[in-house]
Simulated scan of single mutants.
Amino acid sequence: MKQITVTDMQGQTREVEINPGWSLMELLRENDYDEILAMCGGACSCATCHVHIRNADQLKLPPVEEDEEMLLMTTEAYDAERSRLSCQIPMTEAMDGMQVQIVEMD
């Protein structure tokens, strides 16, 4: 079973099973992480699904597109090394062991 480790805004950490083909946003919402608002439904237009990814795991992710980066840069929790929109990360088994931190909304 392939899993990622998710830390919520209260610092609670748990393992979540990867569902290939879903976005990270969908996976988090399906696993009751209500902090992921995803107000635009995954259209990369709101930044309410902002997460931090452990640096080493960035290599497993698709590159950040310009529209995603522009949204991320407007948030207080923006970190050029770790910030991503969870709606823009398609889940694959190669992400086994990835560590995700849900960040507070502005």
Rank of each mutant, 00 (worst) to 15 (best):
A80F: 08
P90S: 07
E30T: 10
D106K: 09
N55S: 13
L24S: 06
L37C: 05
E68I: 15
P63N: 06
I36N: 04
T7K: 13
M105A: 09
I4A: 07
E68V: 13
E76L: 15
Y33A: 04
L72R: 07
Y33R: 00
Q99R: 15
A94Y: 01
Y33I: 09
I36F: 01
E68H: 14
L27H: 02
E35S: 15
E93R: 14
M39I: 13
L61V: 12
L27M: 08
D57K: 08
T74S: 14
A43C: 14
V64T: 10
L71I: 05
T13E: 07
C46D: 00
A77T: 08
C87L: 14
S86D: 03
D79G: 06
Q58G: 05
S86W: 02
R82G: 03
M73N: 05
V6I: 13
N31F: 00
A38T: 06
C46H: 02
P62D: 06
S23M: 04
A43V: 14
E104C: 10
D57A: 15
N19V: 15
S23Y: 01
Q58T: 09
Q99D: 00
M98E: 00
M9I: 15
G42C: 11
G11F: 00
T5I: 15
V100G: 09
G11E: 00
M39E: 12
G97V: 00
A56S: 11
I89K: 12
D67N: 10
E17F: 06
K2Q: 08
C46K: 13
C46F: 13
E17D: 03
V100S: 13
V16N: 02
